[in-house]
């Protein structure tokens, strides 16, 4: 299956800062791909490079093998909702859409269609300066939909939307995928995307952490379950656990977490060793925890790397130069 979007070894350097670093992933048609990462992880820069708004330091970002700037009438193929895009406050919503449609060779009749799709028909003649954040977000979406594109790129689209708006957006995104369109949606919250995405691309510090399916990520979350035990006899419990092949860690002076443990297994185990228990809790890892552990663990690894890397320019006193 050919990819709608291909990112190959994409990099962006702002001076010494590597905002995006050798990033590669693909987005398939007919699926919703969540582009996830903490704030400042390089999601927006990646999307803007893909759309030709930010220059590329290295690598490629293409749609079916073509760069955005090489596509004839690009907004008829790729629709984008980006953060920090704005409107002229004095211009009416319909006029804004009309100017975009005319510039892109799209019939003006499509303007009213998209206004209807996003539910802005009633305020089409109002000046955008009077719009709420949620209305602006809908107008951006209408702009992206003008060309009826087969690829949609949405950067944190639920910003400013109320709960009903978010629900509406989810349904809308699923419908787009059902039409066979490729949808790439960025977010810093996996929980926000759980019900919407098929695939996930997780980045941190500008680097790819993981590209997989949501199903696979859920499986990982399932295996991440375990038990949390509060006991006054932490040391004795630790000795007993060390004697068997099980992963465990102390999370508080009186608390231990045991990976993959079940109450059926641990209850008899505690009785056998005669350990006093205050609390016994089964913990299921949530997707959000997996996401956090993936990005945080990755952050720690990167921080470790860059610290050792940065030590080179500084001369340690007494070290040979």
């Amino acid at each position: 299956m050919t990819s709608a979007i291909e990112i190959r070894g994409l990099s962006k350097h702002f001076g010494p800062v590597r905002a995006v670093d050798d990033l590669s992933f693909e987005v398939a048609a007919g699926r919703v791909t969540g582009f996830l990462g903490p704030n400042g992880s390089g999601k927006t820069t990646t999307l803007r490079m893909l759309l030709g708004l930010v220059s590329i330091s290295g690598g490629q970002a293409t749609f079916g093998g073509r760069r955005y700037v090489d596509i004839d009438q690009p907004i008829q193929h790729v629709g984008a909702v980006l953060e920090a895009t704005s409107f002229h406050p004095g211009r009416r919503a319909r006029d804004h859409l009309k100017s975009v449609a005319v510039g892109a060779g799209i019939p003006v009749a499509r303007v009213d269609e998209t206004l209807d799709i996003v539910g802005l028909t009633d305020v089409a003649k109002r000046r955008v300066g009077k719009f709420s954040l949620g209305m602006r977000q809908r107008l951006q979406l209408a702009t992206a939909l003008l060309g009826d594109p087969e690829i949609l790129i949405l950067d944190e689209p639920s910003n400013g939307l109320d709960p009903q708006g978010i629900q509406w957006l989810r349904t809308f995104i699923r419908n787009q995928a059902a039409l066979g369109h490729a949808v790439l949606v960025s977010s810093h919250l996996l929980s926000e995307m759980e019900e919407t995405v098929d695939d996930v691309v997780i980045i941190s510090q500008g680097k790819l952490v993981l590209q997989t399916t949501l199903a696979d990520l859920s499986t990982r979350a399932g295996t991440a379950s375990g038990m949390r035990i509060r006991t006054p006899e932490v040391d004795r419990l630790g000795q007993a656990l060390d004697a068997i092949p099980v992963g465990w860690r102390r999370t508080a002076p009186d608390t231990v977490v045991i990976d993959g443990a079940t109450p059926e297994w641990f209850g008899p185990f505690a009785a056998q060793h005669q350990i006093v228990l205050y609390e016994l809790v089964t913990e299921r890892g949530s997707l959000e925890e997996v996401f956090l552990s993936l990005t945080q663990g990755f952050d720690a690894a990167i921080v470790g790397q860059s610290t050792s890397g940065q030590s080179a320019p500084f001369h340690t006193p007494g070290a040979p130069s």
Partner: peptide, 18 residues
Amino acid sequence: TVEFRHKTVTTSFLVTPR
């Protein structure tokens, strides 16, 4: 300059990337 002042240039460049 109005395009830069109100950041409408993003949309303009998406429509006309050259």
